[in-house]
Amino acid sequence: MLEIKNLHVKLEEEDKQILKGVDLKVEPGTVHAIMGPNGSGKSTLSYVLSGREGYEVTDGEASLEGEDLLDLEPEERAAAGLFLAFQYPVEIPGVGNMTFLRTAANAQRKARGEAELSAAEFLRLIRERAKELDIDAEMLKRPVNVGFSGGEKKRNEILQMAVLEPKMCILDETDSGLDVDAMKLVAQGVNALRAEDRSFLVITHYQRLLDHIKPDVVHIMANGRIVQSGGPELALEVENNGYADILKSVA
């Protein structure tokens, strides 16, 4: 599904190398988790994959189902099936959540040569998905993320994912700021989407989310590289002992 080889990334404006050779392969239908200390480059990886400006790829490659991602515009990557749930969802005053989602869903459909959803079809779809995530209709009418609590913003990210039905979902700390119940809802939302032809890359600091979304593979990222990969037990080790032992062993 997603294949990253030797990815090197620096900041465009500064001479600062952030990713220093990331290798990662996510098979269809699997859930991978990435953990790692603050500032290790996890969000940067997710931004570079989704096409945010300000980064320069100095070496390596990234592809989605064999298609080179790095040459595509962000909207083309989305249409190809990539989705990023942001660590910090953006507030957009003046743009209604509903309008936003419908514009996005139909833009992707159009880009893939599929028929656009009618207003009624879309309404049905979004109502159903929103209900599953306990998002009320009033939140759908509000401007995108404006006045949403931290937890509501994260649930809104998952709602977008549920409506857009991407193939490769990257979740950047979607669990941070969520209370226990909201975390369960989010995990349910993710689990409901799990499918043979859909993969997940879950960036998190905590084992707790991984109790609900069982990962197949756990990676540890440090200083711009993936330094260790293993099964779910790796997340437990981090939870119990922190990163010190792992970092020492790979140093």
Binding site: R52, E53, A78, V90, A104, A107, Q108, Q160, L164
Partner: peptide, 10 residues
């Protein structure tokens, strides 16, 4: 970027 990351053209 947020809007484009959801598939909306620039």
């Amino acid at each position: 970027f947020y809007l484009r990351s959801r598939g909306i053209s620039r």
